[in-house]
Write a protein that binds this DNA or RNA. Structure first.
Lengths: 334, 334
DNA sequence: CGTTTTAACGTAAACGTTTACGTTAAGGCT
DNA sequence: AGCCTTAACGTAAACGTTTACGTTAAAACG
């Protein structure tokens, strides 16, 4: 299609080796031939072929990123961070949507292997043995993002879910709330499920508040499930002045059904979310939430992956700080 | 690293050509050798190298997608659609975040060229001559998504912005509103700016409502700008019972400041948005909006691109239908 | 001036595939 | 039996780079 390095070499009256050398600016040619080569390159509009390059260098300057759902606000936040540093450090990113489907995930891992990506970021999903095996077979760096695994020793970057959940409920308690419900995510999720419940219960315990089983309901982190969970909470007799939702989307769902029932937030009910997605700011009322620094997490994960790729060394996992973003969805109780 | 086709050939006592043939199931071998080869492949865990393949086939099974901002809900919606059909049709997608920056865009176009992508989807941004030149130099299929260009003849998929804006304001009018403000996006944007203003004005005109200059304010499609625009609207003396925002994010901003001013939506003020992002459903009150079928647009754009890639033929542009999603942010006036 | 060093190149193999072309042997046909 | 077809392979070139190694001539050195 376009001119190749051979065409350039011919037109510049040098060998392909010389052209290659000036391209990668290695030594071995005079200033004069360098000018000449550069000029011919310009004239012909030559562009190197990264595929041929990749074949011989065994490096594609490309990383793969697996998301359970690319279209979630969570994913797009971290993707932004990943893309940012990847581009900064001359790598491209291939996005993969697993749909939380094992078959699809395995297929994607195979594709990434065949495409010879230099590294993989695996986000938000729990690492199954099947994935682990495929990943290790590939012999390339992997970093886990917003997930982790004790069994499988990949470095990860995430917040301390239990601690963050503790902070959220403690915040509610310090605002004077004692009857605090929780809308949890998937109960069995060992990353974003149980740890957050533990944090909630531990905070309750530390402040001498008894845990009430009927104040704990479950969703799947999604908006719809937040609505359903809130309905369930409303149907039970138990009183509560605040709810801690394990995701902003579920918090939005909760606020929405509260609104439909004429329950005003924060006047009649306080709500705190988790994630600090874009929707938290845009919500009515703006949602107080415990923030995960999505963009920074994406950046950091990519940085870790790239240094592993470039240096071949292992890298330490990182716990990111969470913060509480105070907006207007929780009231101070007197 | 892993075993190559040569290793397989050796172990199976056949030539590389034969292995290649069974891999791509072309004819030219007995059933027995096929079994043998397949078995050896299984044993050795052989995986083809797509880079080597790409070098000779001149096809990488990869497409590039350019977004002004990957983290916007709009982008993630269409990305989901693109990824869906790309995967279905055995292609990977490289995401590029242009930040609406010319330099960055050009850099990305160069990268995509060097990486030999098979086609490019260019989204949401106006096509500059510089981009057009780079794109045509590459000699690969391009489709425009949520943008278009009369000057540069790339096929596109988008909704009819003017018509959609017309529908939105007409909807408001039919609900009994006569004093209708508009929060427009960037005034100069020839795709999502002026056409939507024209639709608004034309609807007004068709129903005998005079256009009031002070009821038209500008933002940049983002949430913050929606807030600012709403403040501006509130400061002017002019009365209005409804506002048409040219993006859901700006609508969310408008609702939010209305809420802060004690103006209840839809009781005191009706709001209609544009896009039907996730936030529209999650908003309080749920936002009535004119929907662009983001997922389908992404799917279609990818389908068009892939058929161009596979067949080498040109393909027709497509106008996608827009629909009004009625939720609870606009009131019927008596 | 003869020898050694070095700058400035060129040659060709290698990366892992695909594929055009050639070869062999078996089988079919007259 | 002799000839032709064809199934079933193998050989080697090609894709566009990088790079180890070889070569040449000039410069440096004694």
């Amino acid at each position: 299609m376009g001119p190749t390095i051979k065409d350039v070499a011919k037109k510049a009256n040098v060998s392909v080796a010389t052209v290659s050398r000036v391209l990668n600016n290695q030594p071995g040619y005079s200033e004069k031939t360098k000018k000449k080569v550069l000029q011919v390159i310009e004239e012909m509009g030559y562009q190197p072929n990264a595929i041929a390059r990749g074949l011989i260098n065994k490096r594609t300057q490309t990383i793969g990123v697996l998301f359970p759902s690319v279209s979630s606000m969570f994913s797009s936040g971290v993707l932004h961070g990943i893309e940012h540093t990847a581009h900064e450090r001359d790598h491209s990113v291939i996005v993969c949507n697993t749909d939380e489907d094992g078959k699809r995930t395995m297929k994607y891992l195979q594709v990434l292997r065949e495409k010879q990506v230099d590294g993989i970021i695996f986000t938000s999903e729990v690492m199954k043995e099947e994935y682990y095996n495929a990943l290790t077979m590939m012999n390339i760096p992997v970093v886990l993002l917003a997930t982790s695994s004790v069994r499988y020793p990949f470095p990860f970057v995430k917040v301390d879910d239990k601690q963050a959940a503790y902070s959220a409920t403690e915040y509610l308690i310090k605002k004077g709330h004692r009857k605090i419900a929780m809308i949890s995510g998937t109960e069995e999720d060992p990353i974003a499920g149980t740890p957050r419940i533990e944090g909630y219960r531990e905070a309750l315990g530390d402040y001498g508040i008894p845990f009430q089983k009927n104040l704990l309901v479950f969703g799947d982190f999604g908006y719809r499930s937040g609505r359903i969970a809130m309905e369930k909470l409303l149907q039970t007799k138990a009183e509560f002045s605040a709810v801690f939702a394990a995701s902003d989307e579920m918090a939005a769902g909760a606020i929405n059904v509260a609104y439909q029932h004429g329950i005003k937030v924060p006047d009649h009910l306080s709500v705190i979310g988790y994630d600090n997605l874009q929707i938290a700011e845009m919500s009515v009322p703006p949602l107080t939430t415990v923030a995960q620094p999505l963009f920074e997490m994406g950046k950091l994960a990519a940085e870790m992956l790239l240094t592993m790729i470039e240096t071949g060394t292992r890298v330490e996992s990182r716990i990111m700080p969470h913060t509480i973003i105070e907006r207007q969805s929780v009231a101070q109780l007197s």
